[in-house]
Design a protein around this nucleic acid. Structure first.
Length: 243
DNA sequence: GCGACAG
DNA sequence: ATCTTGTCGC
């Protein structure tokens, strides 16, 4: 559970170059039926303050939180938020939180896009390729792709999220599926699911739909969101903050 | 030039 | 992402 440091490009063109290079390493297949340990990742930040990340180790079988780790990164070291480049901002602190967890999970569930990204490499896909771990992205809003059809209001329903244009240098043509629009709760805004790494399109939906959820976010991510916010507001120290 | 734009 | 009051529904 020790990974290389996460690269921090000097500018956006350098970041885009890295994304176009790493997108070729993304693997869109894999069986998640035996994923027992899941790590859910989310971050919280307030202007001028540190970026705080929470990694929640989730027991898939028992649907419970096993452990929670918190990591922080000083504002000066935090890459600016630019749509399309979120991984350079959040992945470094996610990596630190994962190391603190002390256990390598079987897979990652990340707050953000997987391959449903302008260059095919959202934060979930990037983190998956960097760590070699299977990953799925769950985003609360759209970055790339359009819904193929009308999404039913009923919870559990889904419609494909398809590419609005071809992505040069990749097999992605216009119209190719890049994820799912998933209604986690009846009459609630849907979430955008997309494969990150080592997972197929169908497994992405099957796995997320199998997770318990009381709100639009699957429970592991909701917990990560709560802990990240709590850690930031209450100034919790870095390290294991639960179990 | 204009609109879109994860967190 | 963050902040915020009221409001609606189970």
């Amino acid at each position: 559970m020790s990974w290389p440091p996460f690269p921090s490009p000097p500018d956006l063109s350098g970041a885009a170059r890295l994304q176009r290079e790493l997108v070729n390493a993304v693997e869109l297949n894999g069986d998640w039926s035996k994923v027992g340990l899941l790590a859910a990742l989310d971050a919280s930040i307030k202007r001028g303050e540190s970026l705080v990340a929470a990694a929640v180790l989730w027991d898939v079988q028992n649907e419970s939180v096993l452990r929670v780790a918190v990591a922080k990164m000083p504002p000066q070291k935090v890459f600016p938020y630019v749509p399309g480049y979120l991984s350079f901002r959040e992945a470094p602190v996610y990596l630190a939180a994962l190391e603190t967890l002390g256990t390598t999970p079987d897979a990652l569930l990340v707050d953000g896009q997987g391959i449903a990204h302008p260059r095919g490499l959202g934060v979930a896909a990037h983190l998956g390729v960097h760590t070699g771990l299977p990953s799925i992205g769950v985003a609360k809003s759209r970055l790339f792709g359009g819904a193929a059809g009308v999404l039913d209001q009923k919870e559990g329903c889904a419609v494909p999220l398809c590419s609005e244009r071809a992505l040069v240098g990749t097999p992605c043509r216009e119209g190719l599926q890049v994820g799912w629009l998933f209604r986690s709760r009846t009459a609630v805004k849907p979430v955008y699911l997309s494969p990150g790494h080592k997972v197929s399109m169908s497994e992405t939906l099957r796995f997320v739909a199998s997770l318990p959820r009381s709100t639009k976010l699957p429970e592991p991510l909701r917990q990560a969101h709560l802990w990240a916010g709590r850690a930031r507001r209450e100034g919790l120290a870095e390290g294991l903050v639960f179990e």
